[in-house]
Design a binder for these strands. Structure first.
Lengths: 326, 326
DNA sequence: TTGTAAGCGTTATCAC
DNA sequence: GTGATAACGCTTACAA
């Protein structure tokens, strides 16, 4: 930068002002500096910049590779979320640091802030990290979470209305006249538990309805298929099934088919996420759609508010039932 | 750091030495400094560190959100790759900067290096970026690519043996006695073109075989399903289909089913990637498996070699045919 | 509108 | 083994 300043016959601060679009610089000077900078292929050293400035302009995004990878979850859901966040951050000229998945402890997250690597965090999917997030909030770290939204939590979260999702599925089952409902999903995940709660809330109003629960630890296709099949061998078949994901719903279709049962003739089935194949699957899946498209932008917006000293409220995104064949 | 030095009665350089595990520091001093640092919750400022040091210890990873998101590609393939890279980088204490997808130009990539934000790049999926990558290599940027491996390219790439993948599918089709083959895929993607080449190489040795090609631009389920269906209405059905992905293969099954055609009775079908649902799908998909598990570590290893001044060779990972029902 | 001087928190160099 | 000093490349405060 010193070089550029010399070549353009100005001082370093002036070059800095030009590069930061300061309004207090003469138009002619600005042009000259920019030209010299361009001709010399100058690029600002972002480390020096960050060292000097208060903000880091970097956000650490934390994925739950643990659950998603080991379980080889097939839903491209988190990936879409990541794409949205990436876009929203780049619009605001924020760097996206993908947080190493081994940072499980509160302290290692705090270190990332105090080392001035990132300004804050975006957690995609709260998974089973509830307690850690509470501690992190207590320690004052700036972050937002995509996942189940619980106003009682001490941090800002954004998520679709999982409880409503569960209710929508329940309402559908009632309309179809189903009596023996089955919920399939790992309720250790806050967002999934809320769907279950929504479903049970509807069931509670209909005494003739019973709700059972098949707990699946791994969220991928194969384990769901196998557990569903095993369950069906030990239990009378339900006439309505609510699955925590469309991928799971597809696995469930396969398992029921083994017993000669087809949706919607023998049972109603509702998935979650409205992944692209859901519409074209045979049978076409009834499912709950989340507004992923907005999610990235909203998460980033809220985190920026926090970094600016604000206290944004958690917010719940709309969710809707998409009725197809099942 | 000055504070820690004062509190521990040493100088700043000594604190620095302790923190960097320098061997030339007295054991007692080291203990004392570490204790003081811990007690005061000290964390090193990584920006100052990076400003001073030659290396940045940050790798920019570039995903093709463009193809994958707009096309809403359902294969969790790239996601697995990303998880592997993330893991391999964190083992080496390298930060992972997820590159904004709008960096399409060579210059914007070069800027990331000259701004000292990242030391180098890992491109996941070369997609349609072939020419850009060539330019980037010519400009001397350090990077490696996951994708189709072509020794003629001026950069280091790692990928599975796509050509062999195509040959394995071809051999299978020959064994099944199929004569009218169809390849479904966007050959603008280098890795997909190589699969097509492998398939055609086998066909060339069998004069009775014809190979047709259905070009699909978007790689997601829905467009493949629709294009396949449209094609089947205009053409006599093939007796063997090689799809660029398992997701596509599933779409193809659905399209053929519309015409009352089932695999394997009416046609042979081979997918790619061996995604988890492939095994449990009805019919169970025959597919080609890639060794994604190793990919992340190998990519990182090669990039580190480049950053250390080496010239690692491109390498091809094994690929194997998994014969199931189709 | 522009320039001067100081300082951000580290590490490299060299001396002791 | 350890310390003094300078330097990395930028921005802020203040002066002109």
């Amino acid at each position: 930068m010193g070089d550029i300043a010399r070549l353009a016959n100005v001082s370093k601060p002036t070059v800095s002002r030009v590069l930061n679009n300061s309004p207090l610089v003469n138009e002619a000077t600005r042009e000259r500096v920019l030209r010299v900078a361009r001709e010399n292929g100058y690029a600002i050293n972002r480390n020096a910049q960050k060292l000097r400035q208060a903000r880091n302009d970097t956000v650490a995004v934390v994925l739950d590779f643990g659950s998603h990878r080991a379980g080889r979850i097939a839903d491209p859901f988190i990936f879409e979320l990541l794409a949205g966040v990436s876009e929203a951050l780049s619009v605001r000229n924020q760097d996206l640091l993908l947080s190493p998945s081994n940072l499980s402890e509160v302290q290692s997250h705090l270190d990332l802030i105090s080392s001035r690597v990132a300004d804050g965090f975006i957690f995609l999917g709260q998974g089973v990290r509830g307690p850690m997030l509470r501690d992190l909030a207590r320690a004052g770290a700036p972050f937002v979470v995509w996942g189940g939204v619980d106003p009682a939590e001490p941090y800002c979260s954004v998520g679709s209305d999982n409880r409503l999702g569960g209710q929508l599925a329940g309402d559908l089952f009632v309309k179809r006249g189903a009596k023996r409902w089955l919920f399939v999903g790992n309720v250790a995940h806050a967002e999934i538990r809320m769907r279950f709660d929504g479903l049970r809330a509807v069931a509670a109003k209909h005494p003739e309805v019973t709700v059972e629960h098949l707990e699946v630890e791994h969220m991928a296709y194969a384990p769901v298929y196998q557990q569903m099949l095993a369950w069906l061998r030990d239990n009378p078949p339900p006439d309505a099934v609510f699955a925590f994901s469309d991928t799971a719903a597809i696995a469930i279709v396969a398992a029921f088919r083994e017993l000669g049962l087809e949706a919607p003739a023998d049972y109603s089935l509702c998935g979650y996420n409205n992944i692209p194949p859901a519409a074209d699957f045979t049978p076409a899946l009834t499912t709950i759609e989340q507004e992923t498209h907005l999610a990235g932008a909203i998460l980033v917006e809220k985190l920026m508010q926090i970094l600016d000293g604000g206290k944004p409220k958690s917010s719940v995104l709309p969710t809707r039932l998409i009725v197809r064949q099942t």
